[in-house]
Design a protein around this nucleic acid. Structure first.
Lengths: 142, 142
DNA sequence: GTGCCTGCAAACATTTTGCAAAAAC
DNA sequence: GTTTTTGCAAAATGTTTGCAGGCAC
C-alpha cells in the first residue's frame, strides 16, 4: 500500500501552485525551503511516482521539466532562455503559427490509415510543443 | 568555414535511410560499421550540428532520438518498448484519438489571445507526440 | 599551410540505486 | 510490528569538452 508522506505532498503542492515548469533540481531547491533535510533522491523518486500515476506531467526538454497542471494544453518552449509557457490561448499575430493552422488540423483529420503500424495502438495521451523564441528573447540583443 | 567530412556525411545518410529514430548510441554503433575508428564524441558533435542546422530532428524521449525525415509529421511513442512511429497517417479505430480530434483542432483555432506572454513570440516549428502502447506491446503478456 | 574536425579520455550533469535508519499505518 | 519511504552516498547513464594530431581545403 502506498503511503502519504510530507515530502510527496509538498512536492505535488508546489508543482500545482507554480506555472514555471520547474526541473527536478528546481523542485529540490524549492521544497528544501520547507523540508531542509530532503534529498535529491527523494525528489526524483516522487517525481517519477507522480508522473506514473498521471498526477503531474513530464515535459522532455533539455532536462525533464514538470507541470502540475495536467489539463491537456500545448506548451511553448523558448529555445533561447528555455522558459516554457502554457498555451491555453494563442497568439493571433504569429504568422508562422497561422500558416500552420490548417496543417495541424489536417494531421488529426487524416487519422484513417488503418494499415499503419499504429493501427492497433492505444493512445493514452498526446502533447503539442511549439518551439521558437519568446517575446523577451525576441527583443534581447545578445 | 564548415568542412565536409565522411563522418558527417555517413551519419546524415544513415539517419535519412532509416525510420527507426535511433538514439545517439545507436547511430554510433551503426556508423561504426562503416567507420570503425569513429568516436562517440564525433557522433554527438555532428548530431548537435545537424540539429542546429535543421537537417535532422531531435525527439526528446528518455534519451534523445533522431529523425532524418524533417518533413513535419507527428510521432507516436510507445511507453513500453520505446519504439517511435511516424504518423503520416493515423489509425481510424482508436477511440481515444477520435475523442480528442475536436480538442486538438480547437486548441489551434483558439489562437487569438494577444495578451498572453506568448504574444510576440516567434514560433519556428512545432511537434505533436502521441503516447501509449504500440500494437505489439498491446498484445504482449508481460 | 591554416584552421576545422577527429579520436581519445576525462569531466560533467542528470538521474538511479543500495542500504540502513526513520516514518507511516 | 511490518512495510514503505527516506537521506545519504555511490554508481550509472548520457552528453560535453580539452587537447594533440589528422584531414579538408
Amino acid at each position: 500500500m502506498e503511503r502519504n508522506t510530507s515530502q510527496k505532498e509538498i512536492i505535488l503542492d508546489y508543482l500545482r501552485r507554480v506555472t514555471s515548469h520547474p526541473s527536478a533540481e528546481k523542485v529540490y531547491l524549492e521544497v528544501k525551503n520547507k523540508l531542509p533535510r530532503i534529498s535529491r533522491g527523494t525528489v526524483y523518486r516522487n517525481l517519477k511516482n507522480l508522473k506514473e500515476k498521471g498526477e503531474i506531467l513530464d515535459i522532455p526538454a533539455d532536462v525533464s521539466r514538470y507541470d502540475g497542471n495536467i489539463s491537456n494544453h500545448p506548451h511553448f518552449i523558448c529555445q533561447k532562455c528555455a522558459k516554457i509557457f502554457d498555451l491555453f490561448d494563442f497568439c493571433n499575430d504569429c504568422k508562422v503559427l497561422k500558416s500552420k493552422k490548417t496543417k495541424v488540423g489536417r494531421i488529426v483529420d487524416e487519422a484513417d490509415a488503418s494499415s499503419s503500424p499504429f493501427a492497433n495502438a492505444r493512445v493514452t495521451n498526446y502533447q503539442i510543443y511549439f518551439y521558437g523564441k519568446c517575446s523577451k528573447c525576441q527583443s534581447r540583443k545578445i
